[in-house]
């Protein structure tokens, strides 16, 4: 027995119940399996894309923090150099 699309029934009245099949397994059309696998794969791919984007954004944030820390270090070094130059006696500088 091959499944027929439930289109004719559902076009008039919406489906309100899902029932388990009885007796011998129903022979399934290949397209049903294909559609199920496609839907399943698509759902996981979308979820993975979201997780990947989150991970990439995290990396970008980490890089920005690193760049900010580097800038702070450089500013700190520059300030210290200025302080050292200021503290050196004028004669030594000449």
């Amino acid at each position: 027995m091959i499944h027929q699309p439930a289109a004719s029934a559902s076009a008039e009245t919406p489906i309100t119940t899902f029932q388990a099949q009885q007796g011998a397994p129903i022979e399934e059309q290949h397209s049903g399996v294909k559609l199920l696998v496609t839907a399943y794969v698509v759902i996981w791919v979308i979820a993975m894309i979201f997780v990947m984007l989150t991970w990439l954004r995290q990396r970008k944030l980490a890089a920005r923090v690193e760049s900010l820390e580097r800038a702070l270090d450089e500013a700190e070094d520059g300030r210290m150099a200025k302080t050292v130059v200021k503290n050196v006696p004028k004669r030594e500088m000449d």
Binding site: H3, A6, A9, I15, F18, Q19, A20, Q21, Q22, P25, I26, E28, Q29, G32, V33, L35, L36, A39, Y40
Partner: peptide, 11 residues
């Protein structure tokens, strides 16, 4: 497996 729709109902 669902009686009328078959395996696709698992979606």
């Amino acid at each position: 497996i669902e009686m009328r729709m078959g395996i696709v109902q698992k979606i």
